[in-house]
Amino acid sequence: GHPLTDRRAVVELIGATTTRTGLKVECALDTRIYEKGLKVSDAEFARLDITGDAFHPEWNYTIRPRQPEE
């Protein structure tokens, strides 16, 4: 193992991930500044197609593209 001393170490560790079945992971550090305090209304949130995983759904979930509004 390698100590996770900074964000770069985490990105490099994730990016070095492979599996016996051939999975290769690409990873990049996003250094952009994002505006804080943006609010999503309950109605906007309800329109998201979010499915929680059986294992820790609060951490693991899938967000699928929304269907076009008619």
Results as ranks from 00 to 15, higher is better:
L23V: 15
R8T: 14
V40H: 07
Y61E: 01
K24M: 02
V10A: 12
I63T: 12
T21K: 04
K39A: 09
K36A: 13
E35I: 13
D30E: 07
I33M: 02
V25I: 14
K36S: 13
E70M: 11
T62I: 10
R32T: 11
G1Q: 01
W59V: 09
D6C: 15
T17N: 06
L38C: 07
L48R: 12
A43P: 00
R7Q: 05
W59K: 14
E70P: 15
R20F: 10
E12S: 12
D49I: 06
E69Q: 14
R32V: 01
T18G: 02
T21C: 04
S41H: 04
I50E: 06
D53L: 03
E12M: 14
E44D: 15
T18S: 09
T31R: 15
N60H: 15
I33A: 07
I50Y: 06
T18P: 01
R32D: 01
P68N: 00
R47D: 06
T18D: 01
V11T: 10
L48E: 02
L38F: 11
T5W: 07
G37S: 05
R47C: 01
D6W: 15
A54V: 11
G22T: 08
S41G: 07
P3K: 13
H2M: 14
G52K: 14
D30C: 01
I14Y: 11
G22H: 07
R8D: 09
S41Y: 03
V11C: 01
R7W: 03
